[in-house]
């Protein structure tokens, strides 16, 4: 049965898109058929990591949500851009056109249609994994992606605002009867004791921590131009991604 993985955080800038791209690529590299949905319609961006240029994009998730295009028209094979074979990794990007973003913010969209789009693509492409990159914070769309996920990956930084927001999100996820939840702590500065941090976070939320990621200049230097774990497969950060991906696959 296909598995849906949502990557979410309460606040912005935690590294959602970076995590989604790396985890999806790692899972696809193990021979699974994977698609990534960029449901961050107000501020899309993950297409940059997969090196999909706006001029290569004709149909987007927006066109599907407006009933202008079938969902399959908005799915792009991005495997070759991250060193994978064809027909292995797909991306459904959201539009970066200002008019399109304004329209979706102004009119909203039918959250049922989003759900039908997920299901439709899973069927059409015979997918094993569907990764959902989300908009930060809580919204109807977040609720939907949490409700349909088999695994919810919540990212937080060692920061009071993140701690508080994550508590709210964990509470909501439990009310929505989420099946599995994993936490990932990102941007941990080197002076912090990683084991102690992990233990404290797990105790606070009663949710397992799947990975602890350092504040990494190497990641920043890539500046979203590519998927880190394919560019630097032996880097400790890539190893940590593989560990999180493994836990997702074992759930």
């Amino acid at each position: 049965m296909p598995k849906v993985v949502s990557v979410h955080s309460y606040r912005g800038g935690t590294g959602k898109s970076n995590f989604t791209a790396n985890l999806a690529t790692t899972v696809a590299a193990q021979g699974h058929r994977v698609a990534v949905f960029d449901t961050d319609v107000p501020s899309p961006g993950i297409h940059n990591l997969f090196c999909l240029e706006p001029e290569q994009i004709s149909a987007t998730l927006n066109n599907y949500l407006w009933d202008e295009k079938p969902i399959t028209d908005a799915a792009y094979d991005v495997g070759a851009n991250v060193g994978l074979a064809a027909d292995q990794l797909y991306l459904v990007p959201s539009s970066v056109r200002a008019d399109d973003i304004a329209r979706i913010l102004k009119d909203g969209y039918d959250v049922k249609r989003m759900n039908d789009g997920f299901r439709g693509l899973v069927k059409a492409l015979n997918l094993d994994y569907l990764f959902i990159d989300t908009h930060p914070g809580l919204s109807k769309e977040t609720f939907l992606s949490i409700a349909i996920s088999h695994v919810l990956v919540l990212i937080l930084r060692p920061d009071k605002q993140d701690y508080q927001g994550t508590a709210v999100t964990v509470d909501v996820a439990r009310q929505l009867k989420v099946r599995n939840m994993l936490l990932a702590i990102n941007k941990v500065y080197s002076s912090l004791n990683r084991e102690a941090l992990q233990q404290k976070v797990e105790e606070t939320y009663s949710v397992p921590v799947a990975g602890v990621f350092p504040l990494s200049e190497d990641v920043v230097q890539l500046a979203s131009e590519g998927v880190f774990c394919t560019k630097f497969p032996d880097h400790p950060v890539s190893q940590e991604f593989r560990q999180v991906a493994q836990q997702i696959m074992e759930v």
Partner: peptide, 9 residues
Amino acid sequence: LASSITAVT
């Protein structure tokens, strides 16, 4: 809100 979402799924 949770009920409206569970209706969708």
